[in-house]
Structure formats: structure tokens, C-alpha cells
């Protein structure tokens, strides 16, 4: 039981990170109907920027008050990563708007390769370890199992991750449902041409979608950095694939779906590693995706697609 709860907490933490990345996928898919393969690498870029800012603040400027440092890191990482998201859209996707559908998919894969190798070339291929910054936690329960005493702990790091995810999700839902920007986004999602005819600046709306997705990916990148303490240029690929899987699982195009999918993928992975084998955790996640899609072709929260004849 204790073990189960501990795994649940770990799963929710991991799932929150996946969920934050998945939102970027699902928003972009919703608005222009393409898989933004480079989004996972934007997450990686976010993590690298966060690392650099953190090091600059602590070692060059000598900041010591951790909450303030983290806040600055968060803001700077979000801003700079947004610039990356905007640039990727502007260079690789906007020229192909309204063209052949596979073309942006290929440029997305190309961009993903570019980003990975750019970071590899400029920052080196070796992993970057960062010692844990936030330590300690709350002990929720204690018990015994066959291996001896077991403690269920909710670390402060996990709390921060889950909490900020909840806050960001809430803010985001408000943004989409209440603001003019959100309305423009939903309009573009329904019918881009019509939205343009009604005076919505479609290009700007799409750019802002990429910017928002990138900002959330930067948050996820910072959390990943703090949680695992190790990043390299390749973390974007697997995280991206998992997050995309999460978005599809939840029903692509749906924000709550992306979050739900992220949590589910996180839980599946953690529980599979906890109870079965670590090696096959990705196989478990991917298999469940395939099974869900076969029986629920539009994902868990996606709108069922009625075949129009």
C-alpha cells in the first residue's frame, strides 16, 4: 500500500511534466493540424536555457536566495524558449502554411534534428549534471513490507512540480476560455479561413500558440532539470514522443485531454517500472497508446469523429 502510494506520487510528478509538454503538441495540432515534432526539442532547449541562467545567477552574480533564483530562471527560460518556439514556426512552418500536409511534418523532423545537433555542437554531447537544489519533503506515512520499513515521502520538489502544473493549467484554461486571444485560437481551430475573413490575425494567433507551447515546455524543462538533475541534448526526443503519445491518448486537440494523457503516461511508466521491469516501461506506454487508439480512435477526451459520407 505504501509502495503503491509512493509510486502514485512519483507517477503524478512525471505525468505533470509530460502533461505540460503535451499541451504544446495538442494546441499546435488543434490549430494547424500538424505534429510539431520539434516541440520535444524545444523542451530540451528550455532545460538548457534554465541551466545556463541558473549557473549565471548563482556563480556569476552570486545570488543565493533560491526561490528568487528559481523565479528569475523560470521567467528568463520561458521568455527565451518562447523566442525559439516563435522562430521555429516562422522559419519552418509558416512558409508551408496551406501546402502539402506532409511537408511541415518533414520540416518539423528536420528542425528537431537541427535543434538537437545545434545544442550538441554548441554545448557538447556530454550530460550536464546539476546537484539537487531543493531537498527534503514531508513524510506522509510509514509502514512495513517484506523488504523492511518503507516511507512514503512527498518531496518539496514534487510538491512544486504538481502545484505549479495545477496553477499553470488553471491559468491556461482561463486564457483559452476567457480572453480574446483564446477566442481567436478557438476560431482558428474551427475554420482558419473563416477566422481570417472575420478579422482574426491568423498568423499572429498561430505564432502565439507556438510561443505559449514553448513557454510551457520551458517550465517542463526547468522542472525536469530540477527533478532529475541531468540533462543532455537528446532528452527532447523521448520526452517529446511520450508527450505526443500523451496528447494522442487524451484526445489530440483537447487541453484537459493532454493533461490527463500526460498523467496517465506518467503513471503507466512509473507503475510498470515499480511492479514489473524498468526496461520495458516505454513498451508499456506505447502499447497502451496503441490499444486505446484501436478501441477509442479519437483518444479519451477527444471529440469522436463521425465519418461524413
Amino acid at each position: 500500500m505504501e509502495y503503491f502510494i509512493q509510486q502514485l506520487i512519483n507517477g503524478l510528478t512525471l505525468g505533470s511534466i509530460y502533461g505540460l509538454i503535451a499541451i504544446g503538441y495538442t494546441m499546435v495540432y488543434g490549430i494547424i493540424g500538424m505534429i510539431n515534432f520539434a516541440h520535444g526539442d524545444i523542451f530540451m532547449i528550455g532545460a538548457f536555457i534554465a541551466l545556463a541562467v541558473f549557473l549565471i545567477l548563482t556563480s556569476v552574480f552570486g545570488f543565493a536566495f533560491l526561490p528568487l533564483v528559481l523565479l528569475i530562471v523560470l521567467i528568463v527560460a520561458m521568455l527565451f524558449t518562447s523566442a525559439w518556439g516563435w522562430t521555429v514556426e516562422r522559419l519552418a512552418y509558416r512558409p508551408l502554411r496551406g501546402s502539402f500536409r506532409l511537408a511541415p511534418l518533414i520540416t518539423a523532423i528536420g528542425m528537431s534534428i537541427v535543434l538537437q545537433n545545434f545544442v550538441q555542437v554548441t554545448q557538447g554531447a556530454r550530460v550536464k549534471p546539476l546537484p539537487p537544489q531543493i531537498q527534503g519533503g514531508v513524510t506522509l506515512m510509514e509502514g512495513m513490507n517484506e523488504n523492511g520499513p518503507i516511507v512514503v515521502q512527498l518531496s518539496y520538489m514534487q510538491m512544486i512540480i504538481i502545484l505549479s502544473t495545477v496553477v499553470l493549467m488553471a491559468g491556461f484554461t482561463l486564457l483559452i476560455s476567457r480572453t480574446a486571444l483564446g477566442r481567436a485560437q478557438r476560431a482558428c481551430e474551427q475554420d482558419r479561413k473563416m477566422a481570417a475573413l472575420l478579422g482574426v490575425n491568423v498568423d499572429r494567433t498561430i505564432s502565439l500558440t507556438f510561443v505559449m507551447g514553448a513557454a510551457l515546455a520551458a517550465v517542463a524543462g526547468l522542472m525536469f532539470l530540477l527533478l532529475y538533475g541531468v540533462i543532455d541534448f537528446y532528452i527532447g526526443f523521448l520526452a517529446g514522443v511520450k508527450a505526443f503519445t500523451a496528447a494522442v491518448l487524451g484526445g489530440i486537440g483537447s487541453l484537459p485531454g493532454a493533461m490527463l494523457g500526460g498523467l496517465l503516461i506518467g503513471l503507466i511508466e512509473v507503475f510498470w517500472s515499480g511492479y514489473f521491469t524498468v526496461e520495458y516501461k516505454d513498451v508499456a506506454a506505447f502499447s497502451i497508446l496503441a490499444i486505446v487508439l484501436i478501441f477509442l480512435p479519437s483518444g479519451l477526451l477527444g471529440k469522436p469523429e463521425v465519418e461524413k459520407v
Binding site: A92, L96, F100, G110, M111, I113, V114, Q116, N117
Partner: peptide
């Protein structure tokens, strides 16, 4: 050779933008 894949990716993007079909 270090820049191989970087150039490969850039070439992919540029060819696609130049000739999307």
C-alpha cells in the same frame, strides 16, 4: 563531420520550404 547532422537537418528544412511537393 560534427556538423553533418546539423547540415542534414537544415537541408531537409530548406528543400521542403523550397519545394514542398
Amino acid at each position: 563531420t560534427q556538423y553533418r547532422m546539423l547540415i542534414f537537418g537544415l537541408a531537409m528544412v530548406m528543400i521542403m520550404v523550397w519545394k514542398p511537393r
